[in-house]
Computed example of a mutant assay.
Amino acid sequence: MFAKTNISQAKFIPAPGRKIAELISALATEAEGVTCRVVEIYPEQEGGDRQPHIHPDMEEVIFVLEGIGSVWVEDHEEKIIPHDLLVVPKKVPHRVINPGGQLKLLCFFPDENVGIP
């Protein structure tokens, strides 16, 4: 099914350490194989200190829209800046860290129903 949405009209909901706007998914647009979310990670000192998590059945693709932070993947930390594109393999512990300011991401998953860890 064809779907069109615009990031500027995203409606955010709170989640642990961040807020999320579901742009494309089974719930948002009746997508049949993909989920795309805008995610704003709160700064560490403002509740953004999430624990590492995994996606057991799928990879995650993360595009950095705004801000500077870092990504922690399997005991390795890497700085991220706008326009960086990351691929996190399935079953790999990871987390995104916001040291301060705004950090906005676009996250893609190859599944239409992705839970919010």
Rank of each mutant, 00 (worst) to 15 (best):
A28G: 05
L27W: 10
D49T: 04
G100I: 10
V64M: 11
E78I: 13
I68L: 01
F108Y: 13
D75G: 00
P14V: 04
I41M: 15
F12A: 01
K104H: 03
L85I: 15
S70Y: 08
L85Q: 05
V61Y: 10
K104E: 02
V88G: 01
Q102H: 15
E40H: 08
E44L: 08
G17M: 09
H55E: 11
V96C: 02
P52N: 03
H76I: 15
E60G: 08
V96M: 03
Q51I: 14
I41F: 10
E46N: 02
Q45E: 13
K4S: 13
T5P: 10
V61C: 03
K90T: 11
P52K: 05
V34R: 03
I62G: 01
P56C: 02
V38M: 04
L27F: 12
S8W: 02
E59N: 02
V38I: 13
V34T: 04
V64H: 04
I54F: 00
L105C: 03
V114N: 09
F109H: 04
S25A: 08
L86N: 03
E77C: 03
P117V: 09
Q102G: 03
F2L: 06
I116T: 14
R95C: 06
E60C: 14
L65S: 03
N98M: 15
I7T: 06
V73E: 04
A10D: 13
T5E: 14
N98G: 10
E30P: 06
I97E: 08
K91V: 13
C107Y: 12
I97W: 09
V87S: 10
Q51L: 14
H76M: 11
D111L: 11
E44H: 01
A10M: 07
L106V: 07
I97Y: 12
K4T: 11
G33K: 06
M1F: 07
V96H: 00
Q102V: 15
I7S: 10
H76N: 08
P93W: 07
T5C: 13
N98D: 14
V96R: 01
K19I: 06
N6W: 05
V96Q: 02
P43Q: 07
R37V: 07
E22T: 15
L27D: 14
I80Y: 00
P16S: 12
G67D: 04
P56W: 00
G48C: 10
N113D: 11
L23V: 07
G48Y: 08
I24M: 13
G100Q: 12
I80E: 01
A3Y: 11
E60S: 13
D111I: 15
Q9L: 01
S25G: 14
F2P: 10
G115P: 10
R50L: 02
Q51S: 06
P82T: 07
A15V: 15
P89M: 07
H53F: 07
M58E: 12
V87P: 04
F63Y: 11
P110F: 14
F108C: 09
R37T: 09
I13S: 13
H55I: 08
S25E: 08
P99W: 11
M1S: 06
E112R: 06
P16L: 13
A21N: 12
A3W: 08
D57A: 12
A15F: 10
A15M: 15
K104A: 00
P52E: 08
N98F: 14
E66V: 03
T5F: 12
H53Y: 08
E78A: 11
E44S: 00
V88K: 05
I54E: 05
W72G: 05
F109E: 03
I68P: 00
P93S: 07
V88F: 15
I116M: 09
T5N: 12
I24D: 09
V61P: 00
